[in-house]
C-alpha cells in the first residue's frame, strides 16, 4: 500500500513547520506498519499534546489525541482492556519526560505491551520554543534567554532504569534503520521505547545557531554513532544509536491473565 492509504486526507495540510522532522517519523511508522502487515482496524495510536501529538489525527487508525503527558495512561487503559490491539504512543520530549514523566516510568515498570515513540526535538515547539527536559545545558530557549541551566535526561538510561524491556535510539537522518527499529519495537512483547532525534529548525535551530533543517539533519549524521563503535571510544561526546535493550520479560497483560486464572479458582 502507499503511504497515502494510511493517512486521513481530511486532516491535511498538516501543521508541522517546513523542515520539521516529525513527518519523517510519521512516514517511518507507516512503513513499519506496512512491512509488518498490521491491519488498520487493530491499530490504536494514542498521543498527548504538542507538535508530536498531532500525528494521531493524521493516521487512519483508531486514534486518540489526549492530554499533555497523559497519553501512556490512556494507552494503558486501552491495552489492558483490549490486549489484542497494537498500541502506539507517539510523544514529544516535554510530553513524555516532563509533565508525563511519571506515567512514562510507571508504564516502563509495568512492562505493558505498548510502543512509546519519543519524538525528541529538544524543545517545546508548539508553545514557541521553551526549554524541555531534553534541552541541553547551555542551549537557548525563549524561557532560557541566558542559556539553559537545567541538565537534560538521557531517555535511554531513564527508560532502561525504569524497566523498559526494549529501548532504542535513532534519528530522522537514519530513516531505514528507524523503520527497522520501529518494526522490532512494535513486535516486541513488552514496553518498548524508541527515542527519535527529530529536528526543529524553527523553534530550536533558529535560536541555537543551526537554523537550517539540512544542517540539523547532517548533525545527526556526524554527532551520532552506532552502539559500541570505535568512533565512540575516540569521541565520547558522540550519541549512540541502535537497540540498547531487548529482553523478554513478563508482560503486564499476560501477567493479568494469570490473575484472572487465580481469581477463578478463588484465593
Amino acid at each position: 500500500m502507499a503511504v497515502k492509504d494510511y493517512i486521513r486526507k481530511r486532516f491535511f495540510p498538516h501543521l508541522w513547520c517546513p523542515g520539521c522532522g516529525h513527518g519523517t517519523i510519521m512516514t517511518a511508522i507507516i512503513r513499519a506498519i506496512e512491512n509488518l502487515d498490521l491491519k488498520k482496524n487493530n491499530m490504536v495510536v494514542v498521543s498527548g499534546i504538542g507538535c508530536s501529538a498531532r500525528i494521531s489525527g493524521y493516521l487512519d487508525f483508531h486514534t486518540m489525541h489526549t492530554l499533555h503527558g497523559r497519553a501512556l495512561a490512556f494507552a494503558t487503559g486501552v491495552k489492558l482492556s483490549r490486549p489484542e490491539l497494537t498500541v502506539l504512543v507517539p510523544m514529544g520530549d516535554g510530553d513524555a519526560c516532563a509533565i508525563g514523566g511519571n506515567h512514562f516510568i510507571h508504564a516502563a515498570r509495568r512492562n505493558i505491551d505498548v510502543t512509546a515513540i519519543i519524538m525528541n526535538n529538544n524543545i517545546y515547539g508548539m508553545t514557541g520554543g521553551q526549554y524541555s527536559p531534553l534541552t541541553e545545558y547551555g542551549d537557548l530557549a525563549t524561557t532560557a534567554p541566558y542559556g539553559n541551566i537545567d541538565h537534560s535526561f538521557d531517555v535511554v538510561k531513564l527508560a532502561t532504569g525504569a524497566g523498559a524491556s526494549f529501548v532504542a535510539r535513532t534519528t530522522t537522518y537514519h530513516v531505514n534503520p528507524m523503520i527497522k527499529i520501529l518494526e522490532k519495537a512494535i513486535m516486541h512483547k513488552g514496553f518498548s521505547v524508541v527515542e527519535v532525534l527529530s529536528q526543529c529548525p524553527e523553534q530550536f535551530g533558529r535560536r541555537n545557531n543551526i537554523p537550517s533543517a539540512v544542517d540539523m539533519l547532517n548533525s545527526y549524521k556526524t554527532n551520532t554513532t552506532p552502539i559500541g563503535s570505535k568512533e565512540k571510544e575516540k569521541n565520547p561526546d558522540l550519541i549512540e544509536r541502535g537497540i540498547f535493550v531487548q529482553e523478554e520479560r513478563p508482560e503486564y497483560c499476560a501477567e493479568y491473565d494469570k490473575v484472572i486464572e487465580r481469581a477463578s479458582k478463588g484465593r
Partner: peptide, 28 residues
Amino acid sequence: PAKKGKFIQMEDEISSMCAIIGASLTGK
C-alpha cells in the same frame, strides 16, 4: 478478575482517570 474484568492500581489519580477513559473507548 473473578469475572474476567480488569483492575489496575495506577501511579496516581490523574492516570487512573485517563486509563478508564481509554478503556471506555474500547467499549467497556
